[in-house]
């Protein structure tokens, strides 16, 4: 039940108008720290990336912060140390996996300023299976690219709590989006307990290996990714919400998010079907 339905729809109806690139006349602003952190219950996933905002028309990508001090601690008091392995990238010195039910606090220090956050590792339900079926009415893009198959999701979703999930889809091991701004986010508020053949947003061709990672996210995480979706698909606030920075769990005005998730992975190899 996503606002994106409405946006896609509006784009279709109203923005059949013309468009052109224009040059915005923008003032320079004070850069802000951006924290991108991930901690899951899977070994090798953990990282923290620290960058700064750049001017809108800057080229060369984000400015990396190479002098940050990272401190991660869980609610049992266990501390995990991080090292910079490439500019702006900080990885655990000793690899570890998060534990369901634990809370984790991240502290980032840059030039004497501390940015802190906390997030909890919530359980993720198991996926029963992934299926696939030939779409009976594919659009032209899908015909051209040969991605005629829908991926189908079968799972039981626990209804006693309100849960939020983030999905990532891989096509032959490479992360894939239908639109590069897509964030595949789900809340179970309107979902029934049994999900049976819910089509995924990413399409596949015959012989593809389709993989889906499903992450649990906290309410904070859902809010952040939902805000991020709104921002990435914003229409300048004409019909949709006024563009605003997503509500982060980082303190002290830092942008970005420290995401703590349980993850489950399922994959299927698509064989020819009629």
């Amino acid at each position: 039940m996503n606002q994106r339905y409405l946006y896609i729809f509006l784009m279709l109806i109203l923005l059949t108008g013309c468009e052109e690139t224009i040059q915005l006349d923008l003032d320079q602003v004070e850069p802000k720290i951006v924290v991108e952190g991930l901690l899951t219950n899977r070994l090798g996933d953990q990282y923290v990336k620290i960058t700064k905002t750049v001017d809108f028309y800057a080229s060369g990508g984000a400015e990396k912060i190479t002098n940050a001090n990272i401190k991660l601690i869980d609610d049992l008091g266990e501390e995990y140390s991080f090292n910079q392995t490439s500019p702006g990238y900080y990885l655990p010195v000793v690899d570890f996996a998060g534990v369901v039910g634990r809370s984790y606090s991240l502290s980032v220090e840059v030039d004497g300023v501390f940015y802190q956050s906390e997030d909890q590792l919530l359980r993720v339900p198991e996926i029963d299976s992934l299926g696939y079926s030939l779409n009976d009415d594919p659009d032209q893009d899908r015909i051209d690219s040969g991605h005629l198959y829908d991926l189908l999701l079968y799972m039981k979703e626990p209804k006693e709590t309100t849960d939020y999930y983030l999905f990532k889809f891989y096509r032959n091991d490479s992360l894939t989006f239908t639109n590069s701004n897509d964030i595949y986010l789900l809340t179970d508020e309107a979902l029934s307990e049994s999900i049976s053949g819910f089509p995924g947003p990413v399409y596949y061709a015959e012989k593809d290996t389709a993989r889906m990672d499903m992450f649990s996210v906290t309410r904070n995480g859902y809010v952040y990714f939902s805000d991020l979706t709104n921002l990435l698909f914003n229409d300048g606030g004409l019909f949709g919400p006024v563009p605003a920075n997503p509500r982060s769990n980082m303190s002290n005005g830092a942008l970005g998010f420290f995401q703590v998730s349980a993850v489950t992975t399922t994959q299927v190899i698509l064989k020819k079907k009629n």
Binding site: L26, V29, T51, L175, N181, L232, V242, P243, N245, F257
Partner: peptide
């Protein structure tokens, strides 16, 4: 209208920075 003042990267996304 509300327009970004800058931008940044988060995961694979290019995000507007709003002031």
């Amino acid at each position: 209208i509300t327009m970004p003042s800058g931008s940044y990267q988060y995961n694979t996304y290019n995000v507007d920075y709003i002031t």
